[in-house]
Amino acid sequence: MTVAIERPSQAQSEASRTSSSPSGTGRYAIEADKMSVHYGNFCAVRDVDMKVPTNKITAIIGPSGCGKSTVLRCFNRMNDLISSARVEGEVLFQGQNIYDDEVDPVEVRRRIGMVFQKPNPFPKTIFENVAWGTRINGFRGDMDEMVEKALQSAALWDEVKDKLQQSALGLSGGQQQRLCIARAIAVEPEIILMDEPASALDPIATLRIEDLMKELSVKYTIIVVTHNMQQAARTSDFTAFFSVDDKRTGNLIEFDDTEKIFTNPSQKSTEDYITGRFG
């Protein structure tokens, strides 16, 4: 039971391209095509080919410094904010290369939201945190209703419905992170990128975030970077494994069904990493 996944190496992809996946335009939410990233002269990741299926949870795993965050940031042009960063290759989102000159990064980021490693609510009220993104993007509907829906989707409504006008900084870390998720989905993105969203949280809060991700994956494509193998195994549908070569440049080693990656990986280095034998 496999799904079509493009993998870096031609030989492997031939073997596993037995497709039973639905056809149509909605298959892939976002596709990286020969994408490389340089910070100044340093090549952080090279030639990533990765087609991320729509409405699934895709996990990115790999050793520290292999470029997971870098790849994630490429998907919504957050790398533009790092002046030394340079992206080559293509990232296709709904058939358009988001690195085209004529594409507006602001527009891209609205469509592809992001949740960061450390919860970073704005120093405003809970309500404002959710409302702000939609307001600047020109939302004209009922703001109260919208905020409630977003908070409900993020499974936070019951906990905060009585203190919407209080500062978001007064929430617990886990609540703050769910607020950040609510804030991200309020602007109605297609894809939500999450960079180690639970790494700053305790196990209970982590579980809640994981549940939430599963619920959200019905409507959104989720790409999540994680250092936690169990988390990747528990929550994701697909897993991409990145590793570094001797020049510390990151590569996509294997990208497949999560079950396959964790039970029968086709690459030796993947197996080493997952079983903890990684050098």
């Binding site: 609205r110 970073n120 993104g133 600047i136 602007v187």
Partner: peptide, 21 residues
């Protein structure tokens, strides 16, 4: 903190919106 800027940009705000708000 730059996390504040990233949060703003991540929601599709323009540079000036992030600065101003």
């Amino acid at each position: 903190p730059s996390s504040l800027r990233q949060a703003g940009f991540g929601l599709g705000a323009t540079h000036w919106q992030v600065i101003w708000h």
